[in-house]
Amino acid sequence: MKKYIPVRFRNFSVLASSRAIWITVILMVLFLVVLVVSVGLGDIKIAPAEVFKSFFGTGSDLHNLVVRTFRLPRILLAAFAGAALAVAGAILQGIIRNPLASPDIIGLTSGASLTTVGFLAIFTTSDNALTVSINWLPLASFLGALLTGILVYRLSEKNGLSQFKIVLIGIGLAAGAEAVTNLIMVMGSIYIASRANIWLVGSVNGANWPEVVILMIWFFILFIMALLLSRRLNILELGDTITVSVGSSTSKDKKILLIISTALTGGAVAFAGGIGFVGLMAPHMARKLVGSAYGALIPVSALLGAMIVMISDLIGRTLFAPIEVPAGVFSAIIGAPYFIYLLYKSRNI
């Protein structure tokens, strides 16, 4: 088997590493397995074969209802949110050239949470209904993430973009944003506070199909843009001087990629909340599997991120049933030790 397989299509040609293709295929199969298993588990257990039948609407009525109305939207939402956060993290790690960068560490998630909770507080009437369409919510989250992204970027730019400064400033901004979010929660009704609290830690409970569709479209557009720009990311990762000398525009590329990354974070936070550490873990695992070339790294990160959140959600809703623990709790339980391990590994750098 050759190491690289050329793929040509009219004016477009690329050398794909056969290892990356294999890993992507294996991960896709794994993704399907996790999907089927997690649809099957819960209060009502459904065998995998029955799950497949219900996908196509040919199972029993009860199974159809459980799978198609309750479980599938929730699990798909978890998958897309995880994938979006993972891709956002992969892009950020490339732009900032810091292995510890991720949407939650540099404060994008906190910024998005702030505007999301603010949106809910402003547009919720006294009888707990929204006065504007829920479709505006991702826009609010995106604006929050974008604003934080711009602030972090601008503030850490002094004397060149320092890798560690960006992380420190992100941590500071995140703390400030969290304080304001808490303020909104305390001043609003307990209904908003409780809804916001679940939002903050990240949960996909109560997902419905329109939400899934919006997030799916949002994700795929940005995912394809990220894939098309993956060559630029490969160059950016080499550092500013090399990027400029091979004729790529550093600041323009960085800005576009930063916007893509914040948009992905905003979309995920809008529907699933600030699920932590996924944006950090998934790209790292992907790097171990397929190396740092972004053409392969982005899809592999997306698949891994999707699986991490799906599994966290599965544990969250089955382990302590009937109590539901938000998916973000489990991603933090796995993610924080992983972050510490990364710190430990880079201890002598």
């Binding site: 307990i190 409780s194 609290n197 903050l200 830690v201 932590g276 539901e324 623990v325 938000p326 709790v329």
Partner: peptide
């Protein structure tokens, strides 16, 4: 995260 997790299960 753990604190918020505990709180979200118990209004």
């Amino acid at each position: 995260s753990l604190t918020q997790g505990m709180l979200s299960t118990n209004e």
